[in-house]
Design a protein around this nucleic acid. Structure first.
Lengths: 354, 354
DNA sequence: CTGAAAGCGCTAACAA
DNA sequence: TTGTTAGCGCTTTCAG
């Protein structure tokens, strides 16, 4: 149970703690080779591992960044986490992963924990319109990258936003459906109370207007009547949400011939719902997703979607945080807005009468 | 950049640091209400957050457990992480998540980091046959729950294993196929060098024998010829692995009429590969998965699979760790071997000649 | 080339 | 009811 300390190592090697410390901190040149050998051996024999809390308390530094995502149960966030971790690891950093379920309280709670851990850089994937719950820490010096969220007027200058251009993405998706002749469209999502979701919705309407379709005639589905788990964004079960939506939409009079889903998991759920109703995806009803998760290409039929260049975005997020944390004082914000790409597969096809 | 300390709070409130500390540590009864109010206000005004490194250094305690999984990009692990986090949060614990890619070095690296962080309880999801790379820390007092791995003779007594009975699961899966009349079976997996995978493979063979089918006539596919990323278990891209496998298997002479996949992601890939070949899943070729991830039910056709009771297993893992970490000294091992359940959906159907 | 000493921010006896 | 004090394990000047 008890850990080995630097003193025990020092005694075992017949030297002082500071010599062991020098050895540990990249100054092995400051001692005779034989001393070094003794220290090395003592460390090995005792299985010594420096106590990070003590080290951190002394130096004030930590090579760790935090990552807060809505839910790793969504493979999109799982992949993003993996990419970010890869970038961090390559530079000797670790990443601490937290699931917020987009709950502002939980977000704040986790970020405060990270701050209390001495972590000064975090990637927040939330896109809640207000970041008020987190601003106090930003004021105190927390370096924040808001991922999947675009810059807002009230944002603190030190904050960096990295996101795909959601409006363009959504326009691409909707435009594709319109090009195929669809006129009766549905937009399926959980709560629209996050910035990127609103942008996607705006892109949807914009595209309709451009095609001279009255946006107000489109169907907008934003949540199940009873939301048992407070999962209003459908982050915990995006697929279930989509499936429910499809069931309701197709049971109604004048059902849509195509649906734009808020993300791929939701789109996969919508597809399942369409099949539940005895219809064929891509033939009877078209579906477009957003994200291009691995499973999009695996689905039957493979999902038409909007691709987010995850690896690049993760690398950019880490690079910024590293600069800010290693340097002193925050680097001023250069937000990134990346143009996404439409990937046409087989879940979309020409409109035909139901 | 600089953090607020307990001294500054004390000065601002006109009290001593210990009073602030008492307030912080659930002993607010030990001071006059007015004193308490002053302290409370000072904390709020200054935005004070206790430094966890210092606190931990002093108390030696941390309410954190570690979780090491092969890859959160696999929704199975993502869900498990979520369940474990839920259980932990309910008891005031946090969980630190790490991706190992089943690389022993990375596993050891992370676990050593966790140890250095003062964390004394971790859930390791690895099922590598040897845990030698991790044993030194277990000897020093690390409480380890090996998830997805069954007890081995050489394991230290303090170690607890929690797993589904993989052999039974696999027998159930294979037996189901056999019952449907399939005789030409394939087993698709990445490297079989992990305990649970071997058990699943053994279950597969066992079931064949029971049905009087010579196991040696079955096809065993365990990896792509060139493994570019060292991803020998297919953890990073289980689906891609399955897809490749299906392509190769179906192009060969005398292709299988049914395949047992090592897990659901792999099974989803196999299904995609079957469609790539112009065949129908569940009609021309049957597929069984393992895990019952959310997507299994969403696939087209929905995937027949073996369900793991994830929530229960996560709760058990946490409960054990909590007992071990809170109490002093490790609780002696009570490994759990849970019987999994066959979930029949539509990716399996009666055998018919190709 | 090596050691002594101070102190990072916090908690918990113990004193007052 | 509140304050004083002594470290937790480590790093880092500064002396020897």
């Amino acid at each position: 149970m008890s850990s080995v300390t630097i003193h025990q190592v020092a005694k075992a090697a017949g030297v002082s703690p500071s010599t062991v410390s020098n050895f540990l901190n990249g100054r092995p040149g400051r001692m005779l080779p034989e001393t070094r050998a003794r220290v090395e051996e003592a460390i090995r024999n005792l299985g010594y591992r420096p106590n990070r809390a003590a080290r951190q308390l002394r130096t004030g530094r930590v090579q760790v960044i935090g990552l807060v995502v809505p839910s790793v149960a969504n493979p999109f966030w799982g992949s993003f986490a993996l990419h970010l971790e890869g970038a961090a690891l390559a530079h000797g950093f670790r990443v601490l992963l937290c699931n917020s379920a987009r709950d502002p309280d939980r977000e704040r709670g986790y970020i405060e924990e990270l701050w209390a851990d001495g972590i000064r850089g975090v990637v927040l994937c939330s896109s809640l319109p207000s970041l008020d719950h987190v601003l106090p820490l930003v004021d105190q010096g927390l370096n924040l990258v808001a991922f999947d969220r675009t810059a807002q007027a009230g944002d603190p200058p030190s904050m960096v936003n990295i996101s795909v251009d959601n409006m363009i993405g959504s326009q691409l998706a909707t435009g594709h459906l319109l090009d195929l002749g669809h006129r009766r469209l549905a937009f399926v999502s959980g709560s629209l109370r996050s910035i990127n979701r609103r942008s996607r919705f705006r892109g949807f309407r914009e595209a309709l207007e451009t095609a001279d379709v009255d946006p107000d005639t489109a169907i907008v589905w934003t949540g199940a009547p009873e939301d048992k788990y407070g999962d209003q964004y459908g982050d915990l079960d995006a697929a279930g949400l989509g499936r429910t939506a499809a069931a309701e939409l197709l049971a109604a009079d004048d059902p849509p011939t195509a649906v734009v889903a808020i993300n791929d998991m939701c789109a996969l759920g919508v597809s399942a719902g369409i099949r539940d109703a005895g219809l064929r995806v891509g033939e009877d009803v078209s579906v477009v997703g957003f994200d291009d998760i691995v499973l999009a290409d695996l689905a039957a039929p493979p999902l038409t979607t909007i691709r987010q260049p995850l690896a690049d975005m993760a690398a950019a997020a880490f690079a910024h945080l590293r600069d800010a944390v290693e340097g002193d004082g925050p680097v001023t914000g250069r937000s990134l807005l990346i143009r996404p790409e439409l990937v046409i597969r087989e879940s979309t096809g020409p409109a035909r009468p139901l």
